[in-house]
Each structure stands twice: as C-alpha cells, then as structure tokens.
C-alpha cells in the first residue's frame, strides 16, 4: 500500500473517544438505546407531540447540537447559545401540542423556535443597549442582523449533510465545492469515469437540497 493510499484512507478517520462515565441509564422509559437510535425523525416527532418524555431527550440528543450551532453562529457566543438552546427546548416541550408532525419535521420546527428566540435575544440586548446609551444614539446593529437565522441554519445543515456523505461522494463534493475542480478534473484526479462523477454529484446535490427542504427553518 503506497503512502498516498494510506493518507487517503486515514484521512477519513472519525475518531471519538468516549468517556467511561457516559454509560446512559435509560431513565425515562420508551424505546431502549439501539431501538431508539434507529427510530425515524418522524417517529420521534410523533412521540414528542404526544408528550412522551423520552422523545424530548431524544430530540435533544439528535438536534441539540444543531440548535446550539445555529444559535452560536447567530449570537457569536457559546454562552448565549447555551441559553438559547435551553429556552428553545423548554418552550418546545411546553408548546408541544402546537407541533404537528405532519406539517413539519421536528428539527425544522425547533429551528423556527430558535429563530424567534434569537430575535428575542437581540431585542433584549438592544433594550439594554438603549438604556445604557444615555445619549440616545442608535444602538449598534446586532450581528444577527447581518445574516438571517435561516441562512445560518442552512449552512449548518449542509455542513452536517456533507459530513455524512459516503465515499467517494464526499471527496467528490469537496473537490467540486472547495477545490473548484471541474467534473472532468475530478474524474481524472480520482480515476473515476466522468459519468460516475456526475451521477455522484447529482445525487449528492439532491441530498443536500432535500435536507434543507425537510429540516430547514419552518415558519
């Protein structure tokens, strides 16, 4: 095996080191770990709307990082993002009867709440600012105003979906998106027929788009 082959194969490593302490106790009932892992997002959404407590835990497990990332990218602060994530899950649970699994995917609904909570966050910041700002000058615009929560969420979702592409699809998309290679160049680089490269790109793009359409911010 030559060294570049080793590099290529090692480059895809995903190594997670799990704390020994983190053996979860299934304290809230519902499906057990492996069964829960294999449940569809929709099934989690249905159980969530139905008020089954394990579904809140599962929703947090699946989408806590998504909500947090979007909040962190929007507020610019990990601490504020923690606050937003907390408020989002608390208000989602309290308002679960308003969630309709047939209308939107649960992550999309959660992102909708996230969007409003981030707006609240900036409003309260700007109220504070106005109080502090005795001269009554216009307060500085919040970083969130520069970019909509939807856009941030789209980027985070796409980043996530890209990370889940199998090989060689992921490498092909990286070469196309980040290295700006043409489809011909990718085919040459990877010694894959051009038609195959195109069909991988086509399918990967469909996946990215459908992720945005399914999980993107619901209004």
């Amino acid at each position: 095996m030559n060294s570049s082959a080793v590099l290529q194969f090692l480059g895809r490593a995903t190594v997670a080191d799990v704390d020994e302490q983190s053996a979860p106790a299934d304290s809230v009932g519902g499906p057990s770990g492996p069964a829960r892992d294999s449940m569809t997002d929709k099934a989690v959404g249905v159980a969530f709307a139905d008020g089954q407590e394990w579904a809140l835990e599962e929703a947090y497990r699946r989408w806590g990082a998504l909500i947090h990332s979007v909040a962190q990218r929007s507020t610019g602060s990990a601490h504020d993002a923690d606050d937003v994530a907390q408020v989002v899950f608390v208000s989602a649970w309290r308002g679960r009867h308003r969630y309709s699994p047939d209308h939107a995917a649960l992550p999309a609904w959660l992102l909708g709440i996230t969007k409003r909570r981030i707006a609240d966050h900036w409003e309260s910041r700007s109220r504070e600012q106005r109080r502090i700002d005795a001269a009554g000058r216009a307060s500085k615009s919040a970083p969130a105003a520069e970019e909509s929560v939807e856009k941030v969420a789209d980027r985070v979702l796409i980043a996530d979906e890209l990370s889940r592409l199998d090989q060689p699809q992921r490498e092909i998309m990286e070469l196309a998106f980040f290295d700006d290679l043409t489809h011909h160049q990718i085919a040459e680089r990877l010694a894959i027929p051009l038609g195959t490269v195109k069909s991988h790109i086509r399918r990967s793009l469909m996946r990215l788009r459908s992720r945005l359409e399914v999980d993107g911010v619901a209004v």
Binding site: D17, V18, D19, S22, P24, E57, Y60, R61, G64, A65
Partner: peptide
C-alpha cells in the same frame, strides 16, 4: 451525563 448521550459524547 446519563441521558444526553450524543451531546455528552460530543463533549468528551
């Protein structure tokens, strides 16, 4: 740590 497996795992 008990319930938040993914977040917990991610954290460590």
């Amino acid at each position: 740590s008990a319930s938040v497996s993914a977040a917990q795992v991610a954290q460590v």
